[in-house]
């Protein structure tokens, strides 16, 4: 177990280094940073002096090492656009995005697993077929269209829910939350559904097909032959086995909730990091873009690590090092 964790940690660090390399090279894409910083009238000597001071005359690997060193110490640079440390800007916006992703994930998980199990167990029912057909919409429609559609229906026509923003938020010092006010909660509904809908339908279809497969296995047949109740067979024996392959996909998908919140945040004017990122792209704010990239990668890597740990908890066969033979 420990060796496994260490190996995974090592892999995670490797992934982060590669992402850091990509985000570092972002700075080089836009040309010579010195010409961005100095004025028109700067002499060639000024430029050379500045280049030396900033260490930009060093070879690429040295510069990269320095960059990684700064990141490790928590220095992500100053935003070109706002002129404040990038990390502060992102930390201010992060709670909004994390709360949104969290709600979307809960929505996707609860309804995805619930509908998936339902449609697998009651395959012939009309309602199952209706859900399956409806889920095609979730898979095929682009996020922004769903968002706009929801806004039109629930904000413009029915006037039930706000169409943009986070509503009233409560500042807890280190975190601003929208969970404590009614307007905050109401503002959460539409963006969370918009962001989670695609994942929900995906999880639902995955759970359904996995569950159907598991229900055909010998141990389910044997569980029935032992006279166990349908409830015990379906939710005790089948569901647990269904969730093993589903966990991986869900983990990766939850990571992408944070990453792809950009579109939803733009549609709903949600004051999160995705919205911040779009703004920084428009003004070529490289330090912010690079940091955002690192942040998203960190999310993916962390979630993957957690998923791998979950495997250990759920599947006892991994503990003894037996290869995960397919049932």
């Amino acid at each position: 177990m420990l060796a496994f964790v260490l190996r995974r940690l090592f892999q995670a660090i490797l992934v982060m280094l590669v992402v850091a390399l990509v985000s570092f090279s972002l700075f080089r894409f836009v040309g010579d940073p010195i010409s961005v910083m100095v004025g028109q009238e700067a002499t060639q000597e000024d430029r050379e002096r500045m280049r030396q001071e900033l260490g930009l005359d060093q070879p690429f690997p040295v510069q990269f090492a320095a960059y990684v060193g700064r990141i490790v110490q928590g220095e992500f640079g100053i935003s070109y656009r706002v002129g404040r440390p990038v990390i502060d800007l992102i930390l201010e916006r992060l709670p909004a995005t994390l709360e949104l992703a969290f709600c979307a994930a809960i929505f996707a998980l609860v309804f995805g697993v619930g509908f998936g199990v339902f449609t697998a167990l009651r395959r012939a029912r009309f309602s199952s077929k209706a859900i399956m057909t409806f889920s095609l919409i979730g898979v095929s429609l682009p996020t922004f269209l769903i968002g706009i559609g929801l806004i039109y229906l629930f904000s413009v026509e029915l006037k039930w829910l706000p169409s943009f923003g986070r509503g009233q938020v409560t500042d807890l010092g280190f975190w601003t939350t929208g969970f404590l006010t009614l307007s905050g909660l109401k503002s959460m509904v539409l963006p969370a559904i918009t962001l989670g809908l695609f994942q929900m339908t995906l999880i639902m279809r995955l759970v359904r097909s996995e569950m159907l497969e598991v229900l055909r296995t010998d141990y389910i047949k044997f569980a029935r032959a032992r006279g166990l109740s349908d409830r015990a067979v379906h939710f005790g024996h089948a569901l647990k086995n269904t969730l093993i392959p589903v966990i991986t996909i869900m983990g990766i998908k939850l990571g992408s909730l944070v990453a792809f919140a950009i579109i939803t945040e733009t549609v709903f004017q949600w004051p999160g990091v995705g919205f911040l990122f779009i703004a920084s792209v428009q003004s070529v704010d490289i330090p912010l873009m690079a940091t955002y990239l690192l942040l998203v990668a960190l999310f993916f890597v962390t979630i993957n690590l957690i998923v791998d740990m979950l495997y250990f908890i759920v599947d006892p066969r991994l503990k003894s090092g037996v290869a995960l033979a397919r049932h």
């Binding site: 296995t217 010998d218 029935r224 032959a225 032992r226 006279g227 086995n241 599947d315 006892p316 049932h327």
Partner: peptide, 25 residues
């Protein structure tokens, strides 16, 4: 019928490797 299964009629299947749920002791 469920109450009869296991209680009055037991069943043993062919493949012991797949008859037991791998996730439960």
């Amino acid at each position: 019928l469920r109450k009869i299964r296991g209680r009055r009629i037991g069943m043993v299947f062919q493949d012991p490797l797949t008859s037991l749920n791998p996730l439960y002791r």
